[in-house]
Amino acid sequence: MAKYTLKTQPTTKSIETYLSAIEDESRQADCRKIVEIMREESGCEPVMWGAIVGFGKYHYKYKTGHEGDFMRAGFSSRKTNISLYIMAGFDAYPDLMSKLGKFKTGKSCLYVKKLDDVDIDVLRRLIRESLDFMEKTYGPEESH
Rank of each mutant, 00 (worst) to 15 (best):
L123Y: 06
T5S: 13
M48Y: 08
D91Y: 08
L100K: 08
K3W: 12
G106V: 02
G43Q: 01
F55Q: 01
P46K: 03
K99Q: 15
I37W: 06
K136Q: 15
Y138T: 07
E16A: 12
K57D: 09
I22V: 15
H144Y: 13
P94Q: 03
E67D: 13
R125N: 14
A92I: 02
K57N: 12
K113F: 10
M1R: 11
R27P: 01
S83V: 04
M38C: 13
V118W: 06
P10T: 03
I37K: 02
G74V: 06
G74A: 04
C109M: 07
M134H: 03
D116G: 09
D119A: 10
F70N: 12
S14K: 05
D116C: 04
W49I: 00
E67L: 04
S130W: 09
Y138V: 10
L96I: 00
K57P: 00
L84S: 09
R124H: 09
T17W: 00
A2C: 09
F103V: 08
G106R: 02
S83Y: 01
G106E: 05
G101Q: 06
D95Y: 08
E141F: 06
V53W: 05
Y62P: 08
L6F: 14
A88M: 00
K113V: 14
M38K: 02
G65M: 05
K79I: 05
E141W: 04
D30E: 08
S108C: 06
G43D: 03
G68D: 09
A29I: 01
E36K: 13
V112P: 04
E36H: 12
G101H: 02
L96A: 06
S108V: 13
G106W: 01
S143T: 14
K102L: 09
R124P: 04
A21M: 01
T105I: 11
R125C: 13
S143P: 00
L96H: 05
E25Q: 11
G43R: 05
M71L: 15
E142G: 11
C44W: 00
R72C: 08
S108P: 03
V35G: 06
Q9M: 13
N81P: 07
V47E: 10
A2L: 14
L110G: 06
A51I: 12
M1H: 13
T105Y: 06
G89I: 02
S77A: 15
L115F: 08
G50I: 03
V47W: 00
G74W: 04
C44S: 12
R78W: 08
R125L: 15
S83P: 09
K113A: 12
